[in-house]
Design a protein around this nucleic acid. Sequence first.
DNA 1: ATGTAC
Length: 486
Amino acid sequence: MTLHGLIRHDDFQWHLPMTGDMRVPAIVYGSLELVRAMEDQALTQLRNVACLPGIVRAAMAMPDAHSGYGFPIGGVAAFDPARGGVVSMGGVGFDIACGVRTLLTGLTRDDILARREALADALFHAVPSGVGQGGRIILKGDEMAQMLEGGAAWAVGRGYGLPADLARIEDHGRMPGAMPGHVSPRARERMRDQLGTLGGGNHYLEVQWIERILDADKGAAFGLREGDAVISIHCGSRGLGHQIGQDFIDELAPGSKARRKGKAAAPNPYLPVPDRELVCAPIDSEPGRRYLGAMRAGINCALANRQVITHLVRGVFADLFPAARLDLLYDVSHNTCRAERHLAEGKEQTLFVHRKGATRALGPGHPELPDTLRATGQPVLVGGSMGTASYILAGTAEGEARSFASACHGAGRSLSRTEARRRFKGRDVVDTLQHHGIFIRTFSDRGIAEEAPGAYKDIDEVIASAAGAGLAVPVARTHPLICVKG
DNA sequence: ATGTAC
């Protein structure tokens, strides 16, 4: 059958054949229900991505995909630098290295319930949240450049967290190749007091309990037990990542800001692209290398941010649950472009994989995994919407082969922020969730309305699709107890 | 996502 021009390949995979300027086909992973509900604009964007130079195999959409800036959120695309492949700001996403990390607590749901009000208040107090909010750490002198260069490894060196944390972070907590010199003064200025802050939008700090283990062996290997409490932190590179993306779009998209200011727009030989929002530069070009260097600095910023927040959370638990030890399960970014080795067109090659609202999912045996995770595959952390379940999955060999080792990153929006604000009232949403035993702490009623569970797809359906497509295997389903929301 | 516009 066909839907939106997609041809059904099997229960969870749909193909968009090459038409017009497409250089490769497009693939959408998802159940009939999810694909039927997918916005036309997300599919148009996917088709546009398939037109970009140097794209390899296919433009892909994960089951949680929806429309974004240029690329769909939930989009995956890999480019070959040797064939004019590009890097795109819209393909990384504005919030560079936005991601999730999950901490084990060794505590049970009942332990948390006994101190729930105090814990919710203490976390809300300890971790600054909200749009534009700064924190108590001010980066001075060379510290900004060191943080952008060193990521979570820098943070651990400064006493924020434990050396053992680093093995449980992508790239061991530090993305190599960062070029802080290509991060604008304005981007740095925005970050000056934002390290260790959650931000707004869909970012959160949740205490969750494991209501179901879905794969006993992998669950045990991850240290997960039914009834235990875990902590999930979802945030990114705050104003810095956003400013990096904006700076490069302004530079590379003629006719945007530079022209408005009366300056000559920087000549960009790489445009036109099918959509101005897909503005990009060849990986092997001066601006491409500069953006990659700045973007990698943005990745380190997000890794450092989640590391510092972890330290703040540990401080809270040290007060309220002195016996608890908060071990890091894993930290994954879901807005990145990474150079990775993949088997494509019959040979192993280095490709630049954009994952925008998509999670890397390495299968068992992958050399980049730490020894402790080598046998199970990479933990794939998929955050649900506020008040709904989240999942922990594991990467698979099939996923490595099919989707450049990528899986979904969340529930995925089903309503725009504007539409969500129109339909829901923040106060009501908080009351309803409280009634269901989920404690929300926030400064922003408006943010709550935008993030209402009803504005998101059904996470269970998304996970069933990712699992059905073989992209990752579900290991545990968690449910929120406390949610600190920007 | 975002000092939700400079």
